[in-house]
């Protein structure tokens, strides 16, 4: 599903963000990517989203060579990847329904399909009754669930979550992780970038640990490795 071969990314300032990393993530896997600031996690996410191009190496996602992707093909490629961020990135002037429907409107899904899909996906994330609420009327956990609903409504085969629990309390953090696990059980490949040691250690999933642009460890049922 995701294949990186000797990927190097050096920014124009000359500082290397990734120094030749290779990894393979199969379809349907649930993977944690951990590491301290400057380890290259964010660069990896940006490369997968094709916000950046690698300096060298090859990235294959869902049978698409991302490194050779033409500019005009990027939007269609990104429809294969759902994204969830630490700061939720919801549209504050729109209600829950419109925030989720937005993801379908911008890719020209017909109106009647949107009306059918949005209630379904809101039900999956447990927010069916809050469809008319504005983001500011929701708790952090609920806002993140709206973001997850928006990320999965187009049924992408891959879900990227960048610090999805970074702004949440432990209870809400666990609820989000359970939701991501549920989505993973339905067949979606899930990549979670996190600093949450408790969750990583408890969930017993594959853990890729990065440090200074290289992969320090890649373990099935891994644990959070301390910086030291």
């Amino acid at each position: 599903m995701i294949l990186l071969e000797d990927v190097v990314k050096t920014y124009s300032s000359g500082s290397p963000a990734l120094s030749g990393i290779s990894l393979n993530i199969d379809a349907g896997e649930f993977v944690f990517i951990v590491g301290d600031s400057g380890s290259g996690k964010s660069t990896l996410i940006k490369l997968l989203l094709r916000e950046l191009k690698p300096t060298s190496g090859r990235i294959i996602v869902n049978n698409t060579d991302v490194t050779k992707l033409r500019h005009s093909r990027i939007p269609k490629y990104r429809r294969n990847i759902g994204c969830v961020f630490q700061d939720f990135r919801l549209l504050k002037d729109r209600n829950v329904y419109e925030n989720v429907a937005f993801a379908q409107r911008v890719i020209s899904v017909p109106g009647r399909e949107i009306k059918r899909n949005v209630p379904q996906v809101l039900s999956t994330v447990g927010l069916a009754e809050k469809y008319s609420s504005k983001p500011k009327e929701l708790s952090g956990g609920e806002q993140q669930r709206v973001a997850v609903a928006r990320a999965i409504i187009n049924k992408p085969p891959i879900l990227l979550a960048d610090e999805p629990t970074g702004n949440l309390d432990p209870k809400n953090s666990w609820e989000i992780m359970k939701l991501l696990e549920k989505i993973n059980r339905r067949g979606t490949t899930v990549l979670v970038v996190t600093h949450n040691r408790e969750i990583v250690n408890a969930m017993q999933k594959r853990v890729i640990t990065m440090k200074k642009g290289v992969i320090l460890a890649d373990e099935e049922r891994g644990e959070y490795i301390d910086e030291d």
């Binding site: 990104r78 937005f102 911008v106 890719i107």
Partner: peptide, 16 residues
């Protein structure tokens, strides 16, 4: 912010 979300979701250049 909205434009950023649109791009990430996969909106075409035209739609943005």
């Amino acid at each position: 912010e909205e434009i950023g979300i649109m791009k990430l979701i996969g909106a075409s250049d035209f739609v943005v």
